[in-house]
Design a protein around this nucleic acid. Structure first.
Length: 423
RNA sequence: GGAGAGGUGGCUGAGUGGUCGAAAGCGGCUUCCUGCUAAGAAGUUGUACGGUCAAAAGCUGUACCGAGAGUUCGAAUCUCUCCCUCUCCGCCA
């Protein structure tokens, strides 16, 4: 969340920055609630001061006998008044918190203007687009190879669930290992976190309270299936104070991810691109505020490295302010080439959240000079979405005879297999 | 699921209804001392939100000892409810 102090003191700048996003976020209601809340708080404090005074008099034995009852009565009356203020205060506090938590991050000044993805700006392209006559879609190839079973996925769960068979399952597992090995070598400490997380985690990273309907929740427990490893990994250090010399901290994590895809009805209904359950390797960084820009650049490079190792053509775009996710101040999308769709599709999102998540999750560090704890910066990116990587491999490595070649780097992870052909 | 123990500052850990934001130790910071290092001596050291101030420092107010409610002039301390952790037992991958 955005520092309330900044919101109070530079209302215009904050509103101007937020206006670049879609949706028109006015912070006036927040400021009103904040003012009311602080008024109630100081009233309550003034009353309590008198209570403290009276008890101090009792303590030091300065109360004359005939005044004791009057003073006892006075605090009773004050407590009664405080109760009324308490109700108001609790009410305002909740409103303040909910309103505050619903305000998205400020777009960084380097983020281009624009209202939707058509305003995103391409920054670079990598790799040669393969020349394929009448390229087939990944789902056609996968079904013909017998490695995707969409119908049984629906039978076992519902739509947007897929069963992987034989080399489908094996490639999924091989990619997971390749990606974790690659990021581990780059210095990301591997972690395997819980896949069910509590509500505070989702508030910490910014999914809640605003997007309640987007996630799977357990009926009998206050636990949610993770929509991304970002959630448990970023919350690893929630409510902690880390010594400055321990930063930056890098983590990589594999988890399955679960998303209800509310609002994506009809989008990518065929294929393996948009599933309710998908695997992903995530890379996460915690760093000093002054370093987050360069950490963002290098993190994005670390995500791109996976595509380069697999020799899949991609491009990098910078998201415009209107397309930016709720918590991000700045975000690069990495898009991989899909020959049959004849376009680039998102395969990784690399974001700098600055101190937005750190405030929510209370992630602080102790400065080297021993001063007061400060909020660190958090960043993360997919490294990569595994299902989409498999889909991209199927399409980019497809052969005229219906087989697919295996990217060289993946061959060792598949026990030496370099080609998969239909039975 | 059953029985018991417990949740206190960056950490470990004392705590009698008022002298407790809280002993002590560790860690951190400052200074001193000794060729360097190590060791030693003294001092200092919580967080949040307010007020005062041009601002900072300082001073000052309020809250915070797992969460919430209660008793009391006054609660870390007493009572109740909830949450969490640990130990033992049971069950189980």
């Amino acid at each position: 969340m955005i520092d309330l102090k900044i919101i109070r003191e530079s209302k215009e700048e904050v509103e101007k920055a937020l206006a670049r996003r879609n949706g028109g976020f006015s912070i006036s209601p927040l400021i009103e609630i904040d003012t009311e809340y602080r008024k109630a708080l100081s009233e309550w404090e003034a009353l309590n001061r008198r209570v403290n005074e009276i008890s101090e008099l009792f303590k030091t034995g300065k109360v004359a006998k005939d005044q004791m009852d009057a003073m006892r009565q006075e605090t009773k009356d004050i407590k009664q008044k405080q109760k009324d203020i308490d109700r108001l205060k609790a009410n305002l506090e909740e409103k303040l918190s909910n309103t505050h938590l619903a305000i998205p991050n400020l777009p960084d000044s380097s983020v281009p203007d624009g209202i939707d993805e058509t305003f995103n700006v391409e920054l670079k392209k990598w790799g040669d687009i393969p020349k394929i006559d009448n390229p087939k879609h990944h789902y056609e190839i996968g079904e013909a190879l017998g490695i995707f079973d969409f119908e049984r996925g629906v039978k076992v769960a519902e739509s947007r669930f897929t069963v992987l068979m034989d080399y489908g399952a094996k490639i999924e597992r091989a990619l997971m290992n390749l990606m974790l090995d690659l990021q581990s070598k780059k210095g990301y400490r591997e972690v395997f976190p819980p896949i069910l997380v509590n509500r505070n985690c989702l508030i910490g990273t910014g999914q809640l309270p605003k997007f309640e309907g987007d996630y799977y929740k357990c009926a009998d427990d206050e636990l949610y299936l993770v929509p991304t490893a970002e959630v448990p990994v970023t919350n690893l250090y929630r409510d902690e104070i880390i010594e400055a010399d321990k930063l930056p901290i890098y983590h990589c994590a594999y988890t399955p991810n679960f998303r209800r895809e509310a609002g994506s009805a009809g989008k990518d209904t065929r294929g393996y691109i948009r599933q309710h359950q998908f695997n992903k390797v995530e890379i996460v960084k915690f760093c000093l505020p002054e370093n987050s820009n360069e950490e963002h650049e290098s993190l994005t490079r670390d995500a791109e490295a996976v595509l380069e190792v697999l020799n899949l053509p991609y491009r990098r775009v910078i998201l415009c302010a209107g397309d930016l996710g709720f918590s991000a101040a700045k975000c690069y999308d990495i898009e991989v080439w899909f020959p049959a769709q004849n376009k680039y599709r998102e395969i990784s999102s690399c974001s700098n959240f600055k101190d937005f998540q750190a405030r929510r999750a209370n992630l602080r560090y102790r400065p080297a000079d021993g001063g007061k704890p400060k909020y660190m910066h958090t960043l993360n990116g997919s490294g990569l979405a595994i299902g989409r990587t498999m889909a991209a491999i199927l399409e980019n490595y497809q052969q005229p005879d219906g087989s697919i070649m295996i990217p060289e780097a993946l061959i060792p992870y598949l026990g030496g297999v370099n080609k998969i052909a239909p039975n």
